[in-house]
Amino acid sequence: MIRFENVSKQYKNSQRPALTDINLDIEQGEFVFLVGSSGSGKSSLLRLLLKEETATSGNVSIDGLDVGKLSNRKVPALRRTLGIVFQDFRLLPSKSVFDNVAFGMEVIGKNRKEIRERVPEVIELVGLEGKEDRLPSELSGGEQQRVALARAFINQPKILLADEPTGNLDPSTSVGIMKLLDRINRTGTTILMATHDVAIVDQMRKRIVQLEHGTIVRDQQRGMYGHTGH
């Protein structure tokens, strides 16, 4: 599904490479935690998948599609197969919950009928039924992240990328978000989540890929944050 082959990334104006010789295979339906301290290369890795950046060397492919060689015109089509959630939610402050979720369908040209059918389904999935007309400012952080998750999932992406989705949330709220991600994962969606939330990683017991200074230092099934498992 997702494959990194000997991928390195060197940013201009930067002394050391952000990623060095990364090899990584993620199968369809997997749930993978990407862990490591700030600056270890987690975000760079996600950015390569979104083609916000291009690898300096090596191949990044999704579903057999060579992301690095994708022309700019085809990047939007790639992003439609990916859902993305960020630490800071990135909701539109002037739009209601419904409109924020619908936005994901509107920008890719879905018609009103499809939107009216699909949006309530997903709002229910994330547990926000009855709050469709609220503005983001009237919601708690956890609820805002649920809206963001609904928007990311609205077009039924094959892959969901989450960049520190619980970074701004308290532990109990984070648990709710993780349950939701787990539910989304059970629908067959591959999830790649960058985080340094030890408690969550340890609780979930999923595959862990740990980055340190731009290289993979650990890749472990059903891992715990602090333990190498040996």
Binding site: P76, A77, T81, R90, V107
Partner: peptide, 17 residues
């Protein structure tokens, strides 16, 4: 810029942005 960055991340084409 917030709208446009979100549009881009959900895969809106350049022309529609």
């Amino acid at each position: 810029r917030r709208e446009t960055s979100i549009m881009r991340s959900v895969g809106a084409s350049n022309s529609s942005i």
